[in-house]
Each structure stands twice: as structure tokens, then as C-alpha cells.
Design a protein around this nucleic acid. Sequence first.
DNA 1: TATATTTGCAACCATACGGTTAAATATTCA
DNA 2: TGAATATTTAACCGTATGGTTGCAAATATA
Lengths: 113, 113
Amino acid sequence: MRRDVFQAIADPTRRDIIGLIAHRSLNLNAVTGHFDISRPAISKHIKILTQCGLLTIRQKGRDRICEANFKKLNEVSDWVEQYRTFWTNKLDALCDFLDEEATGNKSNQELQK
Amino acid sequence: MRRDVFQAIADPTRRDIIGLIAHRSLNLNAVTGHFDISRPAISKHIKILTQCGLLTIRQKGRDRICEANFKKLNEVSDWVEQYRTFWTNKLDALCDFLDEEATGNKSNQELQK
DNA sequence: TATATTTGCAACCATACGGTTAAATATTCA
DNA sequence: TGAATATTTAACCGTATGGTTGCAAATATA
């Protein structure tokens, strides 16, 4: 089964887990305390996050401490940022123009809505 | 069912579609030509991308021209970038230190691997 | 008008996902 | 050693996902 960062952060619970342990590592039980779902459910989310490298687990006695590994987010950042110029700067206008050229012209108005 | 940008870009085919129409808007048939899956499969991907606002469709005769709407990627960018300091600069060391404090100290070596 | 082209839609299928409960395992503590 | 705690694993369930084929509908073209 596919297991990559994009798929891992697709689930809102998993994004919340990352946000939770960002500043403070927690054991699985403590993580579970912040959600309304069962411990095994959290355990599965943690496993997915671990498999894609977004999270590492440090065993400490019977506890398993979850720590975020943010370097992995670079993959997402890189993918998104390659398109940044398309939505932030003046290239927008150029893009629209090129689209007109490519697809054979039409009123631009419906693009606004 | 949940329909948000994170879930939309989780699928590699959909990320490829976005990359494909980034510089040049295409009709659905042309998009399909770049993949090994059927037209209805592409149509479904396009629908998902449209529902979450990453893509708009402009009808032109019998063609439906797909255009990327990159502004929606801001949502992803914002989420990722809030963690950037955690993996790019000196705060890494501070974070590790705080983890030690919080979880009760242990060799830092296994964090490196 | 007849035909080809582009697309949508319905029905279907196998598998993945996100969740549950219950039992098993491992560690700590009295 | 026995009990409590933390977590994983297994079995299961309903629904979503990503794909298919076949057919209908709308538009363009000969």
C-alpha cells in the first residue's frame, strides 16, 4: 500500500497529532487523551506517521514517546512551493494570457467567480 | 464525505494532473492522454480537484478545459510553513532540549538516525 | 442529417481507510 | 510474585477510494 507524506497528512486527525507533539513529545496514551477515538485508532495513525518518517518513537520503559520529525515536511513544502509564483505574483496575469492563447480565447469573467 | 485540499493532493495521479495543467490548460481528453488509466477515472480525479477548489473548469463547446487554481494551495503551504522553523534553523537544538526536559532525559543519539 | 468526438453517469468491483472491541504482550510497582 | 499500566495485535465492520465497462447526451463535422 502507498505510504508517503502526502497521504499521511491527508487525514485531519494525523495533522492534529503532529501539531500536538510539535512542541512537546508525548507518549501514546497522552496523545489519545486529546482525541475522542480509541487508543488502537491513535496507534494506527501513529504507525502511519512513523512509516512515512514524519514521526519517530523512542521507547522509554513501557511508554513510547512520539516525536515529530519535521524534515520530512520538506517534501510537501517543495511540491507546493514550486507553484507559488502562480498564485502570488504578477505571473498570474501572464498565465491567464497564455491560457487564452492555448485554448483559443474566451471571456475571462467566469474565471473570477 | 470529507473533501479538502490535503486529501485532494494525497493522490499522486492528482498531483500529476495539477503539474500537467499548471502551464497549459487542457481539456479532459488531453489530460487522459498522459495517463494509463481510463477517461472516467481521470474524470473522477478532476471532479475531486474541482470540488476542493484546486481546479476550475471552463466549458468550450464540447470540451471542458481544466485550469489550475493555485491559490488554494495556500492552505497547504500555511500548514507546512508553520513548522518550518522546526526543521531549518537552530531551534532544532532547542526543541531537542525541551523534549529532554519534558520526557525525562535519555541519550539523544537515537534521534539522529 | 448522419457520424464522429468529448464527456458524464451508472453500475460494479477489489482494496484501503478509519474506526471498534477484545485479547495478548511487556514493563513497572507494591 | 501479583496487579496495574501502556501499548500492540487480531478480528471485524461500514464506508471511501480508485479503478473498470457500457451506455447516454451534447456538440462538432462531413
